[in-house]
Write a protein that binds this DNA or RNA. Structure first.
Lengths: 208, 208
DNA sequence: CGGCACACGTGAATC
DNA sequence: TGATTCACGTGTGCC
């Protein structure tokens, strides 16, 4: 059983053994007039060259190459792929987060904006309090309450007393109900929580 | 000049030439008791195994593998890296776009918050009070005043203190100014005069 | 000089 | 069977 190469084929390639430097820098001069033991020699040559070319292409794709070694090229490619996977994950997470928050605000906004008359008719004279997050210091509140004399003024006073500044406010009275939609912010830039503010408003309205 | 392998070392490895199947499925049985012509045989074995391992690791990183060939693995890795690069570019572009639009809105919003009196003057907005007759008990008032913290609340309090009930009110803040348009009526159905009410409002606003 | 990285031609296994 | 793929041991250039 013969094995791996033979001295017979010494002259088939250039004296320098076809090698000039490292990966991708060799100059091969084949002498195809000679005969070989294996018939798949040409195929093997093509195969080797193809693999070398792919490796070269891979090297050109990866920005950070620590070494020109075949193994190192693949290693760097692996770490690069990992970095890219993390980048993709991070970016898409951020994007999803942004999308969700945007959807949330749009949804709450459109919820608030749909057809005041319709909503009031549906709710009739049902009192309602909704608090929507705008940013850390700003909240948007919508209040529907039964119209009573001086009740709106007392509501404004109470809100101011709680340290909330009304930046924009819109008040409508209709069919015995008052609809207040307003933007409030903490007097000294305090962080406001939706739940806490809503509870405070419920307490206020119950007392007036 | 001898070249590439020799029959001398046939017995150094298992009869099946250490090969069982394709990439990553070989079972190598080395016989290190034999001597070899080349002294770097072990090193070469290690090198080959390392390269195979890297290639295997690369294969595990790439989700779509069309073939198990060495060349194909690298090829698929290249296309995967390209796809990932495009994904990263697309995602970061979207993120930048979103960020910019968000910055824009934040900027325009915060633009409103800077410099109340100055901005009003620049935009040619003057403080103004207008009172319009609706009927004996109802008046429509329009007030433009410089935005100051808590000023609106104090205005509402003062109006209530004067015995005026706010039935409908609309407040908008823009360019450092507050625009209040509201319908007021006397608390006990009193007759209201335009001139008198306007003077009262002027007095109130001057004091707050 | 020795270690390292590479390409080489080959036998065998797989399809 | 013929084509293809693989691992092998080796020769050689380079550091």
């Amino acid at each position: 059983m013969e094995f791996a190469g033979s001295a017979m084929n010494d002259l088939c390639i250039s004296p320098e053994h076809g090698r000039r430097g490292r990966l991708g820098r060799r100059k091969i001069i084949y002498d195809d007039t000679k005969e070989f033991k294996s018939k798949n020699l040409h195929a093997e040559r093509r195969r080797r060259q193809k693999l070398s070319d792919r490796l070269l292409a891979l090297r050109s794709m990866v920005p950070i190459i620590t070494n020109m070694n075949k193994a190192t090229i693949i290693e760097d490619a692996i770490t690069y792929i990992q970095e890219q996977q993390e980048s993709v994950k991070l970016l898409s997470d951020q994007l999803i987060e942004m999308d969700e928050s945007l959807d949330e605000t749009v949804k709450t906004v459109s919820d608030h904006e749909i057809d005041p008359a319709e909503e009031m008719k549906q709710c009739g004279i049902m009192e309602d309090i909704q608090v929507t997050y705008v940013d850390e210091t700003k909240l948007w509140i919508k209040i529907i309450l039964e119209k009573k004399r001086g009740r709106f003024t007392r509501l404004i006073e109470a809100i101011a007393y709680l340290g909330l500044e009304l930046t924009d406010i819109n008040v409508t009275s209709y069919k015995g109900a008052i609809l207040v939609s307003s933007c409030v912010e903490g007097t000294y830039g305090d962080t406001l929580t939706v739940q806490q503010t809503k509870e405070l408003l419920v307490e206020i309205i119950r007392s007036i």
